[in-house]
Amino acid sequence: MPQRPHTDTDEDPVESAAVLGTDLELGYGDTTVVDCADIVVPAGEVTALVGPNGSGKSTLLKGFSAELAPDAGTVLLDGTAVHDRSPKQLASELGLLAQENDAPGGLTVGDLVTHGRYPHRGFLDALNDADHAAIDRAIDLAGVEHLRDTALSELSGGQKQLAFVAMALAQDTDVLLLDEPTTYLDLHHQLRVMEVVRTLNEDRDVTVCVVLHDLQQAARFADYLVALDDGTVYDWGPPEDVVTEDLLADVFGVDAAVSYDDEPRIVPRRALD
């Protein structure tokens, strides 16, 4: 099992890491969920965390966002530990779109996105021009302009998710973490969300780390994949290297056919015992 990142990339992955976890142990109480030597989210790329339920994807994300203090090891963001930053400082550098998306139904999309500016405002500050610009840009990028004055309670699940994505975009961070942003969405909105993420990465050079349930989607949209198995890194690298029939058998317990002609294609056949 390769614990170290592959070395077949152009640059040293540790050098170009936006987020770097070293000798990381994360858990709740006495239970350790994640225990991995090195984990790298390369700057300027889209990295997908994949793995079966309970493999520690969300926990790892909580460690990255300083929501969970590591039992051992460190998480570095741009070279300094995430835990050394004040909450506002961290939130202006690293955005997190969590899975739970309940919010007051009476809130409009515009109001919600405005809250994305929270880390950039002082206790008494009103919105300034930079805030308005960031809000407009986020709403535009997420494609929810037409919903700006609509209450969240009147949105479909997919529209709501795009509104929350817009809020995270308004935060205007260099790194964005997303925890299963496409789960429970219809196909159209799954693709919309992933396209927004892709555009954000390409146009604004934002480093993205996204937990995805759908392996094929991860293989299509991400530059790098981190496959987690029972809290450790099973494999790391470009999708073609990581998503293999062995991975599906070893980590996911699935017998599947994997092919890369023009698109990654995963055809699961049966569950392995």
């Binding site: 004040s86 909450p87 955005g95 969590a98 919010a103 809130l107 929270y118």
Partner: peptide
């Protein structure tokens, strides 16, 4: 308003 978005979200926004 931000507190109403939920604790995790408020924290993620730097509160």
């Amino acid at each position: 308003d931000v507190l109403l978005l939920g604790e995790r979200r408020a924290r993620a926004l730097g509160m």
